[in-house]
Design a protein around this nucleic acid. Structure first.
Length: 270
DNA sequence: AAACAGGCCTAAA
DNA sequence: TTTAGGCCTGTT
């Protein structure tokens, strides 16, 4: 089994990275490592000192994983930039180790469509069953896993085909998004080279994609750092700490990272 | 049993 | 421009 090794002395905490709400497919192993499916195949990640070891990956995957874990940005200095007050100091200290993953664009779009009005266990369950039904099988250490099905795989399906996935009324949203991506009407890669306003407008033109889902997709897969998703946890955080007024623009291009710290801090300290 | 969950859409002020 | 109710489904 091939293994990739990455080295970092920067913020890097697997528990926080995978637990801060940006992804749905990584599961903690008994030894504190994580197993999941990303970059098109199953992999196992664990940290040993300043080394990050990834097994189950192919040749030349080192730079892909560097990109996935956003290792070419200095989070320690980014953390300083979002400390606009005492609350943000506390939140970013608490969240030290979080990184914003560079995830597959279609997978992120589809996953966050599924997330609407759902709880996390069920989101994960639906995503897994979608992968099991329509993804490609892959193997790691004798166990089988399934990749996330591409937009082109889902585009020709009907709502009936998706019924076993049990995603309810979201099925039609998934299909329309899959068709938009597959046909090229929605070009996610091109959007990643635009700006927050442009990307948001394009995404929200699709049925079932509103402000929150659009912001998640933009932040977690289009790498536009100004995106600032506001969900129920964030509403609580804002009401509690910025009762008069609040504008994520104070964080500029780091608004999304500030959001991650606020979100994680709020959810872990209710 | 009835309410609720990491929203979105539509209809009505 | 803001607000209420409905929506699939599973869990409590």
């Amino acid at each position: 089994m091939e293994e990739v090794e990455l080295v970092t002395s920067d913020d890097f905490d697997l528990k926080k990275i995978f637990g801060c709400g940006q992804c749905f497919r990584w599961k903690e192993d008994p030894d504190g490592g994580y197993t999941g499916v990303a970059l098109g195949r199953a992999a196992r990640v664990r940290r040993v000192g300043e080394r990050i070891l990834i097994t189950g990956t192919g040749d030349g995957a080192q730079s892909l994983w560097r990109g996935y874990f956003d290792l070419d940005r200095d989070y320690r200095s980014l953390r300083e930039k979002v400390c606009v007050d005492e609350y943000m100091r506390a939140a970013s200290d608490f969240g030290a180790g979080i990184r914003i993953l560079n995830q597959d664009r279609w997978e992120t779009l589809c996953s966050f469509i599924i997330s609407q009005c759902n709880n996390i266990p069920r989101i994960k369950k639906i995503v897994e069953s979608l992968c099991r039904a329509f993804g490609d099988e892959t193997e790691l250490e004798g166990r089988e896993y399934f990749t996330f099905p591409g937009a082109s795989r889902l585009a020709p399906l009907s709502e009936g085909d998706l019924a076993p996935v049990r995603c309810g009324y979201r099925a039609q949203y998934i299909l329309s998004a899959a068709r938009a991506v597959d046909s090229g009407a929605l070009d996610l890669e091109a959007l990643s080279k635009t700006d927050l306003v442009t990307a948001k407008r394009a995404l929200m033109a699709l049925p079932g994609i509103g402000e929150k889902v659009a912001n998640c997709v933009i932040l977690f897969s289009l790498r536009i750092g100004a995106a600032f998703p506001v969900d129920v946890w964030m509403r609580k955080a804002i009401a509690q700490h910025y009762p008069q007024s609040f504008d994520p623009a104070v964080f500029g291009e780091n608004a999304g990272l500030a959001q991650q710290y606020m979100f994680y801090y709020q959810r872990e300290n209710p």
